[in-house]
Amino acid sequence: MGRSGQLLLALETSGEQVAMALYDGSVIGELLYDAGREHTATVLPRIRELLADNRRSIRDVGAVAVTTGPGSFNGLRVGMSIAKALSYALDVPLLGVLTLDALAYPHTALGRPIRAFVVAGRGRVVYADYRRQGVAWVRDSSLRSVRIEELAEGLMSQTVLAGALPGEHEQLLRGRPAIILPPPSLRQLRPAWIAELAFHRWRAGEADPVAALEPIYVHGGGAEIVPPVQLPVSYEVRSGQE
């Protein structure tokens, strides 16, 4: 039945930038490219190429990770459909990773609170807050949808902002005393971050249900507080060293 392969394939299709990585405790290979809206036509061919380029076969994959959002609904469904079918056909574990968790993850070493966000369209962003609790990092149980201008409001202590705003809005984040703003390339979702987060869960024996796993659909238009989305509340974002 389940393979004993050590290789994890991570897939993120929630935006125009598609990300994928092969990971086995360290990064084997990564791909980040601008798919525009051509996710269905391009993602599987790129997975095939990534495997071939790294002299691996799809049969070497022992776990599949996929981002659950928030992000483009159809984009998320492409990744989710592929990841589920891979998990089913290969009979290997499936792991969902919140895009916001992956965005926050590389900044945990700074030891500061983190606010991770993605742009949700209609001038809104969806964010979650992360704080240190003992040796672990914990995410607030709810995601919040606010107007872009409100993203940095109410931040008291030095908080790392993890995420990228469209051009003109980046100004809003600069020069504010309560904000730590990493360089742009560290605020863009990277394939390996998703893979590494999922790898920790996989090694801990965790997996998500293949049939029931769903993207998180955040409707940006109305509510200030996004109603309880199905998040594993106890889920921890661990910092790199254990």
């Binding site: 996710h39 269905t40 993602v43 599987l44 997975i47 095939r48 799809i58 159809n74 469904r77 492409v78 459909s81 592929i82 589920k84 079918a85 891979l86 089913y88 056909a89």
Partner: peptide, 12 residues
């Protein structure tokens, strides 16, 4: 797109 991506993956 759900069916197409799943079918492609299975064929792969």
């Amino acid at each position: 797109l759900v069916g197409v991506n799943v079918a492609k993956t299975l064929a792969f």
